[in-house]
Simulated scan of single mutants.
Amino acid sequence: MKYSNSELIVERYYRLRKWLVEKDVPILPQNGKRFWGDLDILAVGDEVHIISCKDFLPSNKEIDRVIKNLENAEIFIRKEYNYLKNKKFKKIYVYGGSGKKSIEKAHKNGIETIELKELLAKYFKELDSYLSKMNFGRTDIGKGKRYTIVGELEGLDKFMSFLLNNNFINDETVNKLLEKNNIDKLSKPKQ
């Protein structure tokens, strides 16, 4: 199955935070209703995050489906994942593009919204923090680089660490988004 950009970033962000992540969780019919669907991401850590991911929401009518899906997902997960029932649940909509009315409607329905570029900046910070810890105290980090050890990484994390390490990522743009969310800046390359 093809994943959207937002699903890839959401999954890796939560995994770097050491949360348990399940993708494409089937949501089965409840109380005789004829609804069936799936939840893009279920993330479990200190809280339970039920996450719908959309790279682009083509119309304001689509947000009604997102809202209904998140409501059904919460009911299903509270019922079927009994061991999570005492945790705080949060419904989240991650989007690459969406209309203002859709965002307002999501908020009115108790759904937190996160623009993909802001989550991407947070992901970069989590990846940078992870790699900085892994490379702490190393003296063999080359000039202009942030890290030397990235070998244990796979997939998206390995690719993004390459981009960070070789200055293909615009630190200023990422740091502005991090600052907007009261998060420390990315580490600096070795001078």
Rank of each mutant, 00 (worst) to 15 (best):
M1G: 15
K2E: 13
K2Y: 07
S4W: 04
N5M: 09
S6Y: 02
I9T: 11
L16Q: 05
R17M: 13
K18Y: 04
K18S: 11
K18I: 00
L20H: 10
V21P: 03
K23E: 15
I27R: 07
Q30D: 06
D38S: 15
L39G: 11
D40C: 01
G45F: 05
H49V: 08
S52A: 14
F56A: 14
F56L: 08
K61A: 12
E62D: 12
I63P: 00
D64F: 12
R65N: 13
V66N: 04
V66T: 14
K68T: 11
L70A: 03
L70Q: 03
E71R: 15
N72R: 14
I77N: 05
R78W: 06
K79L: 11
N82M: 12
Y83Q: 11
L84N: 01
K85H: 03
K87P: 01
K88W: 01
K88M: 05
K88T: 14
F89Q: 05
K91F: 06
K91G: 03
I92S: 02
I92F: 02
Y93G: 00
G96Y: 06
G96C: 07
G97T: 02
S98F: 09
G99Y: 07
K100W: 01
K100S: 09
E104Q: 09
K105M: 06
A106N: 00
A106R: 01
H107P: 00
K108H: 12
I111R: 00
E112D: 12
T113W: 01
I114W: 07
E115M: 11
L116H: 10
L116C: 01
L119A: 02
A121S: 10
Y123L: 08
Y123T: 05
D128I: 11
L131G: 11
M134G: 04
F136A: 15
F136P: 00
F136E: 15
R138H: 10
T139C: 03
T139Q: 09
D140C: 11
G142M: 13
K143H: 12
G144S: 03
Y147R: 13
Y147I: 13
Y147N: 12
G155Y: 03
L156W: 14
K158A: 13
S161L: 06
N165Q: 11
N167H: 14
I169K: 09
I169L: 10
I169N: 09
I169E: 05
N170C: 12
N170F: 12
D171C: 07
T173E: 14
T173Y: 12
K176L: 13
L178I: 07
L178W: 08
L178R: 09
E179V: 02
K180R: 12
N182I: 07
I183Y: 04
L186P: 04
K190Q: 05
Q191L: 08
Q191M: 03
